[in-house]
Simulated assay, not measured.
Amino acid sequence: MSFSLNDVTRVAHDLWPLSGASGWDAPGLVTGRSTDPISAIHLAVDAVSDTVDEAIAVGADLMLVHHPLLLRGVVTVAEDTYKGALLARLIRSGCALLAAHTNADVVVDGVSDVFATRLGVLDPQPIEAGTDPGTGIGRVGRLAEPTTLGVLARRLAVLLPATASGVRVAGDYGDAITTVALCGGAGDSLLRHPAVLAADVYITSDLRHHPASEAREQAGVAGGPALVDVSHWASEWLWLDTAAAQLRAALPGVTVTVSEIRTDPWDFVVTQ
Rank of each mutant, 00 (worst) to 15 (best):
V228E: 03
D105K: 01
A222F: 11
H66Y: 08
G59M: 05
P37D: 03
D105M: 06
G138P: 08
D61G: 10
R155E: 11
A212K: 03
P225I: 02
T263I: 06
A170V: 12
R168G: 03
L119W: 04
R72Q: 14
A116Y: 11
L119M: 13
A100S: 12
A40K: 15
G174I: 01
Y82V: 00
Q246H: 01
V45D: 09
V58D: 09
V52N: 12
L71E: 04
T163R: 09
A57I: 11
L15Y: 01
E54A: 14
S189T: 14
H66N: 08
T131N: 10
R89A: 14
G166R: 04
R72F: 13
D188P: 06
A40P: 05
P194E: 05
V221A: 15
T9V: 09
G187S: 00
D188H: 10
A243C: 13
D264A: 13
K83M: 09
A222I: 12
T271W: 11
P17A: 10
L191N: 14
P161H: 02
T163I: 03
R262F: 00
F115A: 03
I177L: 09
T147G: 05
E217Y: 12
L182T: 09
A21I: 01
A162Y: 06
P17W: 05
L43N: 01
H67T: 02
S235C: 04
T242I: 02
